[in-house]
Design a protein around this nucleic acid. Structure first.
Length: 316
DNA sequence: TCGTGTCAAGATCTT
DNA sequence: AAGATCTTGACACGA
């Protein structure tokens, strides 16, 4: 089994390696004219796109095949202050250049709309904002010329006092999505509400891939994964399943992410997943970003039965 | 240049 | 019902 690793948004190994440059609505309002406001947003976006490209080059040089774009690539993309701004047109040719680079190197890229994107909210205005956010994320991938494969990770959302109804509402809202959005979605189990078993059942019903977060799974009841993993893997069809991994920040603060990932927090799962005989992609969620990922790979490679397979992959 | 406060989002918990 | 809390990284600002 080949296991590839990736990381989220910021590359600590790249000088000026944060693609998250942004501004606030408050600060933007101080600029009087629309052109001035959009000009500021455009400069920040261009810097973010250029940083993203530098990060991808760094990834290619370090054999990193997995990467998650930041949702902040376009600052205030869905904010009313940016209404009328064609950030796709203004970002060319960088969008296309990024997409071409991804395709040339066979990278697997994704994005994760933040936890305020709630497809199952009972409030119409929250749903509308969530759809606008999904549209923004999809437009980024379309601007890059990347095919409509699973690329956007979502959580189910809130519980709203009645979990079963909240799950049903997600399914209904999903069914009503434009095809170009639905085709990009994956659903991830969360750390407090929707368990791996519940998200699995949902994904099977919807015919969408499930991203298993093994840290969330531990936070949210845990339990044996041996039985459900083959079914989770099956939601990916012929594609390589993807999981998320992180270590708890501390015993007091289990849910928060630690700086690094302890190999023992992943190794048992890898041994289990090996039984399905499928390759695996692992997204590392840690404060120390790419450094944490490289350290995890090095740590795993010292374990019995695990061989290093490049700088950001192992074989077992 | 440093440290501290502010910002943005929505659910959910606390008062 | 109103306010605090959670989360995250970066901006904004005062010292």
């Amino acid at each position: 089994m080949r296991v590839r690793f990736g990381y989220v948004a910021i590359a600590l190994g790249v000088p000026e390696g944060s693609p998250n440059k942004t501004t606030t609505a408050k600060a933007l309002e101080k600029i009087a004219d629309w052109e001035g406001r959009i000009g500021r947003l455009r400069r920040l976006m261009t810097a973010n796109l250029e940083t993203t490209l530098r990060i991808l080059r760094y990834n290619a040089a370090h054999e990193v095949a997995l990467y998650r774009f930041t949702s902040k690539t376009v600052p205030l993309a869905t904010h009313p202050l940016a209404t009328g701004w064609d950030y796709i047109a203004d970002g060319q040719p960088l969008w296309r250049e990024i997409g071409d680079y991804v395709k040339l190197h066979g990278m697997r890229v994704s994005a994760h709309p933040d936890h305020y994107t709630l497809l199952n909210s009972p409030k119409p205005e929250v749903l509308a904002a969530s759809l606008a956010d999904l549209d923004y994320h999809a437009r980024m991938f379309e601007a890059m010329g990347l095919p409509p494969s699973p690329s956007l990770v979502l959580h189910v959302g809130g519980q709203y006092r009645e979990k079963a109804a909240a799950l049903r509402r997600f399914a209904e809202r999903f069914a009503a999505l434009p095809g170009r959005l639905a085709a990009r979605l994956m659903v991830e189990n969360d750390d407090k509400i929707f368990t791996a078993a519940e998200v699995l059942a949902l994904c099977e019903e919807l015919g969408r891939p499930m991203v298993l977060d093994i840290h969330h799974h531990r936070c949210n009841g845990g339990g044996e994964l041996a039985e459900v993993w083959p079914r989770i893997a099956a939601t990916w069809g012929g594609a390589t399943p993807k999981i998320h991994v992180s270590s708890p920040k501390s015993s007091k603060d289990i849910r928060a992410h630690a700086d690094y990932v302890a190999p023992e927090d992943l190794l048992p799962f890898l041994r289990l997943a090996r039984e399905t005989g499928r390759d695996l992609d692992v997204m590392v969620e840690a404060k120390m970003k790419d450094e944490a990922m490289f350290r995890l790979v090095a740590g795993l490679a010292e374990s019995p039965g695990v061989e290093r397979a490049g700088l950001a992959a192992v074989e077992l």
